[in-house]
């Protein structure tokens, strides 16, 4: 077993474009769930709106890439409004159910044969990333010793981490302001905040929109990363993974989503490679009756599910969080 390969492969993923996507999605969830207490289980829906409309603008409608970006952002605001209006006055679990349903509505609709000529059905869309590729300042392979990336991948993660950094700064600035204080107050007890003359509904809506915008940006990146936008990238589990990322890093901590995403993808890749090595080849280390190569690919998700449960039960504040500041009432 080559430990070094195992570690470098994991590190590659932990810093790579996938980690960027989930960091962005989780920053959005952090604003919504971590700071405001809104259970948006439809982050994948915001990602779908972002990714699909950016891609379709270029690939289907022949518009500019930037129009696509604007359209994706604009429509994610519309989505937030549409979801928020019926549910933000209701209990938290209603928002959860409505958002998860909405994300699935969006995914199934955009992936449908009915809208094939716009969104490409199950195969999705391709050929929309030209503007982004042309902006790439890196022309040769970037080798950092342990890890190395193709120019396009490096451009993706380079620009992506810059966006993540901007997002983190924005969230940091917002959350130390009186505006952020109102959000945290709403998370603790919205009636108390209401009794102090704050328009709770409006603040929740603002939070939902801001989180949704981060979701849309994550959607742009997921499409660019795969140079293809299809329904697979925005399944319900995508949202659940983003929550795991957030909780791992610590909800209501500015850097929580970033740390969470890096750690998450490191561990997931590590497990994947590890079990892959165990079951690889004609005479695998692990007997086939225990685990085949195919079953090995499931181990990471089995462990992830278990980890999410244990994390929530024993360390709800995340790996680096402070229990006293715990955002979720887990006790």
């Amino acid at each position: 077993m080559d430990i070094l390969n195992l570690l470098s492969g994991s590190l590659q993923q932990a810093l790579g474009p996938t980690a960027v996507v989930y960091a962005l999605a989780a920053i959005g969830l952090n604003v919504q769930f971590g700071y405001t207490g809104l259970l948006n289980f439809g982050q994948a829906g915001f990602m779908a709106i972002g990714g699909y409309f950016m891609a379709a603008s270029v690939a289907t409608w022949g518009l500019s890439f930037w129009v696509g970006i604007a359209l994706g952002l604009g429509l994610s605001v519309v989505l937030a409004l549409l979801l928020g209006i019926p549910t933000l006055r209701l209990r938290a679990d209603y928002l959860a159910i409505v958002t998860i349903a909405a994300a699935e509505i969006i995914r199934q609709t955009l992936g449908s044969v009915t809208l094939l000529k716009w969104f490409g059905g199950q195969d999705g869309l391709i050929n929309f990333q030209r503007t982004f590729v042309e902006m790439n300042p890196f022309s040769s392979r970037v080798d950092l010793g342990i890890v190395a990336w193709r120019p396009f991948d490096f451009w993706l993660l380079f620009s992506g981490w810059i966006l993540v950094a901007i997002g983190v700064v924005v969230v940091w600035l917002l959350m130390r302001s009186p505006w952020g204080r109102v959000l945290k107050g709403i998370r603790e007890d919205e009636d108390a905040v209401r009794s102090l003359g704050k328009n709770v509904y409006s603040y929740k809506m603002q939070s939902l929109i801001i989180g949704g915008l981060f979701g849309a940006v994550a959607g742009f990146y997921v499409a660019l990363q795969h140079t293809n936008m299809n329904p697979t990238w925005v399944a319900t589990d995508t949202t659940f993974f983003a929550y795991t990322v957030l909780l791992l890093g610590g909800a209501a901590r500015v850097l929580g989503p970033v740390v969470g995403s890096i750690v998450f993808w490191f561990l997931i890749t590590f497990l994947d490679l590890f079990f892959g090595i165990l079951t690889r080849g004609a005479d695998p280390f692990m007997p086939e009756w225990i685990m085949t190569n195919q079953q090995a690919s499931l181990m990471r998700l089995i462990i992830m599910g278990l980890a999410l449960m244990l994390l929530m039960i024993f360390r709800p504040q995340g790996i680096f969080g402070d229990r006293r500041e715990l955002a979720i009432d887990a006790r």
Binding site: G37, L39, L308, R331
Partner: peptide, 29 residues
């Protein structure tokens, strides 16, 4: 045991998500 600990409803909801991912992949296994 989670009720005994006084685990919040939202936390329990997230535990159930973890359980769902765990069981679903175990079934596939």
């Amino acid at each position: 045991p989670l009720r005994r600990r006084g685990t919040g409803l939202i936390a329990a909801m997230i535990v159930s998500i973890g359980l769902s991912i765990f069981l679903r992949n175990l079934y596939q296994y």
